[in-house]
Design a protein around this nucleic acid. Structure first.
Length: 677
DNA sequence: TCAATCCGTATC
DNA sequence: ATACGGATTGAC
């Protein structure tokens, strides 16, 4: 395209135009070789989402390398950008501006990552600039100066294949990775084993093939665990950790070590999906169903999708592992894109704890209020009692807090704040009920419908559960772990650990028993991925418990006939995911279709209804939605068959571009959002 | 007829 | 955001 065209270069003296602008007093001499820089400017507007050409002055020739950060004048303003390429000529018919400054000659946006950013922007109907902001961490000049020479590396340890030998296809997988091949797999991890070891073995095999790996993990706790295992097996200096919470300098230093090719293994949370690992051999992800992988900033890409786009572009291996199977991973298996790597049913049964279901004793309790705690049926109490004799036991509760949702004991009406109608909760045993919205204590409370004065808790939080269990098991240590006070791990002494989802501590030698409370409450949420999300969390809890052979057991309190609970009893994450996927097909929901939500002010969103959508598009709405921090917002849903996904994204980009060009208010456009709020 | 101003559009 | 070009307006 560019070849053959000549650059609109005007040489000559100051004439008020040409190469000069008002403030420049010295003549501009273009670089002798490749005088044109193709620059991606840091402007998020959709209608400006394309590269712009600038002239490289001779004095910036050496510094201006592809992938470096530059500053240019754009529409009269000085803006940052990335130099994508140096070329001979420009197709631009007007005059070219000049590169004002090379911020640093450090290559931070390699061609591969630039391509990836473009692909992600296209997939999610976003702009390149928005995606690059997710991919390249903010510059830290001091980190750039320091750490130029990498530490000498010891030789790679031989690949030990032990963690994969329990999977029929495991050894073959590792051999293929070590041989330089690019197999794509969804791996159903056996419960109770340290999942960081199989991932480490895969990373090591890839290193043996002379290639690098990117591994994404849901949160900082998981990153720390994999970091420790990698260090143990690979020694120091072979990998880096890319997480935001390490601070800007450490984060940029780790990023540079990867960008400079000093290390070939990058692990981290969702942003690590963009790590510029050289000679990429594998992308891996643990527990890909975790919604922490969904980026909350525009264009809201999911790290799994980023890794898959990357693997496709660079012919890298894919390893998606977890104790549960996400619906998306199952779709990859069923489409033939990924192979299914799991253990035989027998191996799976013996590796896991014994799972039994206990019906909630709500009904029994209603008949006989003296029967004890309604939430903890006798089977659960028995499991805790015998388990706590031997080691730590885990109780999983749905919510943090004490008594979370109060209702009238007599008429069951929700208890509301007299002042603002907000829901009432109770923060500890002797406290007056407090409004969750305005914070006012309502003392004393009287039911406005029936005049009742007694309150009943619809939802019992982790602290109240701890209090009840402390009374039931005097002399045993009871501790809690929840957001704000997460316990990472517990030792093997007898104790009762009460945790909210995602905050479960790891027990060094496994829990002797676990009780899953509130399963009905978790499944009652109306969101489309509620069942999948609940099952994922429960499989993660079960995996923390000792195998049945060492008398590990799990009591699920809930409805034994419900499909999610059945999946736990049968230890069948794949079957459950296949079933969910079939339901998504029937309901025409992702990943069976591609779906976009458009949220914004009513009249603006209403106007997109007559937009020129692809023929196959199904346009739903608009309906009012709650939109935090903004006044009345509405939402439109557009969905198309999967194969028309690119057409939908393209249409949305056109929609955005016409809107940003006429300075209309931005709409929130999300493709395949994790939840449809 | 020409300058001052407005508006739309491109931004290299 | 700003800058530029073309259209429009208003004063000679």
């Amino acid at each position: 395209m560019r070849a053959g065209a000549t650059v609109a270069v005007e040489e000559g003296p100051l004439d008020g135009g040409g190469w000069y602008n008002q403030s420049v007093t010295t003549a501009l001499v273009p670089a002798a070789q490749h005088p044109v820089a193709v620059v991606a400017v840091d402007i998020p507007f959709a209608h400006l989402d394309r590269p712009f050409d600038y002239v490289v002055p001779a004095d910036l020739d050496e510094q201006a390398v592809p992938g470096c950060r530059v500053r240019v004048r754009f529409a009269g303003q000085r803006v940052g950008g990335y130099l994508l390429q140096r070329v001979d000529s420009s197709e631009h018919v007007g005059r070219l501006g000049r590169l004002e400054r090379v911020v640093s000659n450090e290559v931070v946006l390699t061609p591969q990552i630039a391509r990836l950013c473009r692909a992600v922007a296209d997939r999610y109907a976003g702009s390149f600039a928005d995606v690059v902001r997710l991919a390249v961490p903010p510059r830290h000049a001091r980190a750039e100066k320091a750490g130029a020479d990498p530490a000498p590396l010891s030789s790679l340890p031989a690949a030990e294949l032990e963690p994969w030998s329990r999977y029929p296809a495991g050894l073959a997988l590792i051999e293929r990775l070590a041989a330089g091949e690019a197999p794509r797999t969804c791996w159903s991890a056996l419960p109770g084993v340290d999942w960081t070891e199989p991932i480490t073995q895969a990373v090591l095999a890839i290193l043996h093939s002379g290639r690098g790996s990117v591994v994404c993990l849901p949160d900082a706790r998981d990153v720390t665990r994999l970091d420790a295992t990698l260090r143990r097996y690979l020694g120091p200096g072979r990998h880096v950790v890319l997480t935001a919470d390490a601070g800007p300098q450490a984060r940029y230093r780790a990023f540079l070590a990867v960008a400079r090719g000093q290390v070939q293994v990058a692990i981290g949370t969702r942003a690590a999906a963009f790590a510029p690992v050289r000679d990429l051999g594998m992308v891996a992800m643990w527990d890909d169903g975790d919604d922490l992988y969904a980026e909350p900033r525009a264009p809201y890409p999911h790290a799994r999708e980023v890794l898959l786009l990357r693997a496709h572009d660079q012919a890298a291996a894919v390893l998606l592992g977890g104790f549960a199977r996400s619906v998306q991973a199952q779709a990859l298996v069923q489409s033939g894109f990924c192979a299914d790597v799991g253990a035989a049913a027998e191996e799976r049964r013996s590796a896991g704890a014994r799972v039994l279901v206990a019906g909630s004793s709500e009904m029994a309790h209603a008949r006989d209020p003296a029967a004890g705690s309604a939430r903890l049926p006798s089977e659960a109490m028995a499991a805790l009692r015998s388990g706590a004799a031997d080691g730590p036991v885990l109780v999983s509760v749905a919510r943090a807090g004490y008594r979370v949702a109060l209702t009238c004991q007599d008429c069951r009406e929700p208890a509301r704040c007299a002042h603002c109608q907000g829901p009432l909760g109770q923060s500890h045993a002797d406290a007056w009920p407090v409004c969750r919205w305005c914070g006012r204590a309502s003392s004393p409370w009287t039911c406005p419908s029936c005049g009742g004065r007694r309150l009943r808790a619809l939802i019992v939080g982790e602290r109240r559960t701890a209090e009840e269990l402390g009374k039931a098991f005097p002399g045993i240590r009871v501790r809690t772990s929840s957001a704000g006070g997460v316990v990472d791990s517990v030792d093997d002494r007898p104790q009762i650990v009460i945790a909210t989802p995602g905050a479960e501590p790891v027990a060094a030698d496994g829990y002797t028993a676990a009780v899953l409370l509130d399963t009905g409450l978790a499944l009652a949420r109306p969101d489309l991925s509620t069942a999948e999300e609940s099952v994922r969390r429960w499989f993660n809890v079960i995996a923390l418990v000792r195998p049945a052979a060492r008398s590990g057991r799990v009591v699920v309190v809930g409805d034994g006939s419900s499909i999610p609970v059945q999946a736990l009893v049968r230890a069948d994450p794949t079957g459950f995911a296949a079933r969910e996927l079939a339901e998504r097909h029937a309901a025409r929901l992702p990943p069976a279709v591609r779906l976009a939500t458009i949220i914004g002010p009513g009249p603006e969103v209403a106007s997109v209804l007559d937009f020129d959508w692809p023929q196959s598009a199904d346009v739903l709405g608009s309906v009012p939605v709650e939109h935090v921090g903004q006044e009345a917002a509405v939402r439109v849903i557009v969905r198309v068959p999967r194969r028309h996904g690119p057409a939908l994204a393209k249409a949305l980009r056109v929609l955005q571009a016409t809107r940003t060009a006429r300075k209309a208010v931005a709409l929130r456009i999300q493709i395949d959002p994790v939840e449809i709020g």
